[in-house]
Simulated assay, not measured.
Amino acid sequence: MREEAMATGRGGAGALAPDLAGSEPRDWLLLLKPRVVLLVVYTGVVGLVIAPEPMHPVLGAIALLAIALGAGASGALNMWYDRDIDAVMRRTAARPLPAGRIAPEDAAAFGLALALFSVVLIGLAANWLAAVILAFSIVFYVVIYTMGLKRRTAQNIVIGGAAGAFPPVIGWVAATGSIDLAPLVLFLIVFLWTPPHFWSLALFAHADYARAGVPMLPVVAGPRATRRQIALYTVLVVCSSLAPVGLGFAGLLYGVAAVVLGALFLRHAWAVLHDAQDEAGRSLSGDRPARACFRFSITYLFALFGALALDHALGGMAWLMP
């Protein structure tokens, strides 16, 4: 089945032959993975607003638009390359490329054009160091992760997670023109957050990944090992989330938020680890804890970075300190 999907998905003929007449503007938007773009822009905003040098609002908005376009370009190129495996996975089969609503060559051209435009745009609006990092993040996601790691190793998410951790660094560099410790800490938080986020998804979508031949951790190492890794990485991300306070670029408000959110994240990871399982390690609860952990991980990152931005805006609530 996979070989058939690859033949039709990569060759552009057969059952998945594009029907461009059926494409709509919404299909081109979906090609950009808008939910991912939203998270990328959000973390980029936080990197920009906590930077010590304020950026002109118009130039800042243009820089964030460039980050969004760069993330969308990465998503489009990812969908172009992965159209064969997307066609055999239930949760992705309706995407514009496997469904035949957009031609592969059009998707590739669209993604490449957006990538180039986004890099030039942020270079002109902000600085060329930000442009270089944005370009590297696109190449990392498309070439290193999508083409190189995703189909070859169970560590695809661990290494590939770096691609999604660049936006706060890009936001900071857009404002300051330099790299500092603070954005690197934000990079680390997102980097460590990525494995428990995606492995929670992989636990309840493992059949899809197995059908497509993608070596996600539950497929290769099994559910039990995956649950242990989710717990381990959750501990690591919660510990790293306290670093902004220890390093002095976040205050009491953020510290309290990090502790509370971290405790909730650990609770979800504990529930995943101790989910009732059969002898093969499969969940007896329909992977309810994994689904809950996946959903909360998104809330966690949004709330954590939001708390950091608010803490910065309020000066760390220094007025509460003696």
Rank of each mutant, 00 (worst) to 15 (best):
R2S: 07
A7V: 05
R10T: 04
D19V: 11
D19W: 08
S23A: 15
R26P: 01
R26G: 03
L30Q: 11
L30V: 10
L31G: 03
K33W: 04
R35G: 14
L38R: 09
T43V: 12
T43F: 13
G44P: 04
V45L: 15
V46F: 09
I50H: 02
I62D: 03
L64Y: 09
G70P: 09
A71H: 06
A73D: 07
A73L: 06
G75V: 08
N78W: 02
W80H: 15
I85A: 02
A94N: 07
A94E: 14
A94Q: 13
A99K: 07
A99Y: 10
A103L: 06
A107Y: 01
A108Q: 08
F110E: 12
L114Y: 00
L116G: 14
L121G: 07
I122M: 02
A126T: 03
I133S: 02
A135F: 14
F136G: 00
F136T: 03
I138D: 05
K150G: 09
I159H: 06
I159D: 08
A163H: 05
A165H: 03
F166G: 02
V173K: 06
A174T: 11
A175Y: 06
T176Q: 12
T176A: 03
D180L: 00
L181T: 14
P183D: 07
L184Y: 07
V185T: 04
F187K: 10
I189K: 08
F198V: 05
S200E: 08
A202F: 07
L203A: 10
L203H: 04
H206P: 00
A207W: 04
D208V: 12
A210W: 00
P215V: 03
P218D: 04
V220E: 14
T226W: 11
R228Y: 10
Q229R: 13
Q229V: 06
L232I: 11
V235D: 02
V238F: 15
V238H: 05
V238E: 06
L242Q: 14
A243P: 01
P244C: 13
G246Y: 03
G246I: 09
A250Q: 09
L252D: 11
L253V: 14
A257C: 09
A258C: 08
A258H: 10
V260A: 15
L261E: 01
G262W: 06
G262R: 09
H268P: 00
H274K: 06
A276T: 08
A280Q: 13
G281V: 09
R282E: 15
S285L: 14
R288Y: 01
A290T: 02
A292W: 00
C293E: 03
S297G: 10
I298W: 02
Y300G: 04
Y300I: 03
L314E: 12
L314T: 15
L320E: 02
P322W: 12
